[in-house]
């Protein structure tokens, strides 16, 4: 069963087009959604969540059509768009007090557990938390309302290597029970080597490849030079890199 299925998502902007984006996140998978800056990762995620109106396409999450069951779906997913850039001067306790009221299946015991686990001080203001802590707080909120699918847009961008390592381990552990799934966009591909089971690769608004991490490596095995194994970064750079022509610098 798939936790999420995207079919034929299209969106045209004056300078950018999302073309027929289709992929699925199997239940229990950690899917890395990769592509360079401006490839269409955030636009796809925003289209999935209804923040941007796709011109065409269908989004099915937890077996339900997003357009028809938006409220149910949002009750059962957790979304982290980078860190927190809203309500920076509010205390964490206040933000939680407001947020928890929106979820019927809010579990206060779990919330306390994750606060303790992540060492988050509720009396701090949002802008007093480091970027890594902000992402962890958002994950704590998502896990406290028993989200079955986590959608994270660039959660590791701007984090130090230790925080990134902690976060990738956390995401892997969240999906390890086989019930919860994660869709995780990033351009820091080394993070995915540690936790992703599946990959969706987007370039210029089009999906280039989607499948398991192992299949992805096999698919691009032809790019391999020498004996060194191909990293995800090698693949992306080889596919995306455009050489500067000799008149580029004037």
């Amino acid at each position: 069963m798939n936790a999420m299925e995207i079919r034929g998502l299209c969106k045209t902007y004056p300078a950018f087009t999302l073309k027929d984006v289709s992929f699925a996140v199997p239940q229990g998978a950690v899917m890395g959604f990769i592509g360079r800056n401006g490839a269409g990762k955030s636009t796809t995620i925003k289209s999935i969540l209804g923040l941007v109106h796709p011109d065409a396409g269908q989004v099915e999450i937890l077996g339900r059509d997003f357009a028809k069951d938006e409220k149910f779906i949002k009750e059962n997913i957790g979304v982290v768009l980078g860190g927190i850039d809203f309500y920076p001067k509010k205390k964490i306790a206040v933000l939680t007090d407001v947020t928890r009221r929106f979820y019927e299946n809010w579990d206060e015991e779990k919330y306390r557990h994750y606060l303790h686990l992540f060492a988050i001080d509720e009396s701090k203001r949002v802008d007093q938390l480091s970027s890594g802590m902000q992402v962890k707080y958002m994950i704590a909120l998502a896990l406290s309302h028993n989200a079955k699918l986590l959608i994270l847009d660039e959660p590791t961008s701007g984090l130090d290597p230790v925080s990134r390592d902690e976060l990738t381990e956390l995401l892997g552990r969240i999906a390890a029970d086989g019930q919860r799934s994660v869709l995780f966009s990033t351009h820091i591909t080394s993070d995915l080597e540690k936790c992703a089971s599946h990959i969706a690769f987007i370039k210029d608004g089009q999906i280039q490849y989607t499948g398991t991490l192992a299949d992805f490596r096999d698919h691009y095995a032809y790019l391999r030079q020498g004996d060194a194994p191909l990293t995800l970064e090698d693949i992306i750079v080889a596919v995306e890199r455009r050489p500067l022509d000799e008149n580029a610098i004037i």
Binding site: G50, E70, K71, K74, L81, D85, F86, Y87, F102, Y103
Partner: peptide
């Protein structure tokens, strides 16, 4: 200024 749009977008509510 507090970017409520992004906070509200994460909540289980319709637009």
């Amino acid at each position: 200024e507090q970017k409520d749009i992004y906070y509200s977008a994460l909540l289980p509510i319709r637009k």
